[in-house]
Design a protein around this nucleic acid. Sequence first.
DNA 1: ATTAATGCAAAATCTTTGCACTTTC
DNA 2: GAAAGTGCAAAGATTTTGCATTAAT
Lengths: 153, 153
Amino acid sequence: MGTEAQTESQAIRPYAASLELLRKVGLRPTRQRLALAKTLFMEGGHRHVTAEQLHDEVMASGVRVSLATVYNALHQFTENGLLRELVIEPGHVYFDTNVVPHHHFYEAATGRLEDVDAAEVDFSRLPPPPAGMRVKGVHVILYIERDTARAAA
Amino acid sequence: MGTEAQTESQAIRPYAASLELLRKVGLRPTRQRLALAKTLFMEGGHRHVTAEQLHDEVMASGVRVSLATVYNALHQFTENGLLRELVIEPGHVYFDTNVVPHHHFYEAATGRLEDVDAAEVDFSRLPPPPAGMRVKGVHVILYIERDTARAAA
DNA sequence: ATTAATGCAAAATCTTTGCACTTTC
DNA sequence: GAAAGTGCAAAGATTTTGCATTAAT
């Protein structure tokens, strides 16, 4: 098994994979959307980004994109199930590349968000929804902070 | 037991109570802050308001206040533990008069928020916080929607 | 009198939009 | 070459700020 064959079959080929992703949801694979998709989805692991962060990052990678286009793309990606919108602190909308239902750790001091798998949270008690309503989803935010009172125990 | 005695001892006297509330947290009881405190805290039940909603409401009650003052007051109230800030949908900060830890139902279609008492939620499983961190608080948001598939059963 | 709070309008953010130009199909 | 997407700058929306005026202690 040559390295090339392995590379082609197993490793992520960002361009091809991004192209396919966009095709799948019916968005034209433009240079800009490809660059954004590559940055968001092709670097392994899940991400939480703001429009501005993503814009800076893509620009830094050498692709010129306008901020308006980043906003457009983020919303189109969201509408097509590629991203999930998260609002936790005032004035900042995060886009989460993890679209499977899950929860979050949030460190207010740094603004850092970290995923919590849905399987890591279970409820032994939940209230019944108001009359005529049904619960469509649950989001648990665990606010964390540096543990200063840290004994070696 | 005369009605007057009862009124004075039991019923809420908005002005006096608001005044005392502001005094207690060390904010000068100005006409504007008194009006805002009365609207927020003296009508029974808990509230979730945006700055603009509150501004409209207080203006409608006949007290002239500028929107900037409403923002100032909301933040001062928050800093002094009288309110809790909530961000659930982009572009809107809600201020919650319920400052005891609790959770929320949220109906996206209408923007309606409803309190869920902390006692109504229990966890049978929670993840350990990241190394060196501790969990400071938990907020559960239960997304609800109209239950259309409603059989009479 | 002193000190703080208010109001206004202007500024700062973040986000969306209108329209000419460019790119993809 | 038709349809969709992009970029820019301008407009919107929400929130904050600077400073003269007004009110509370």
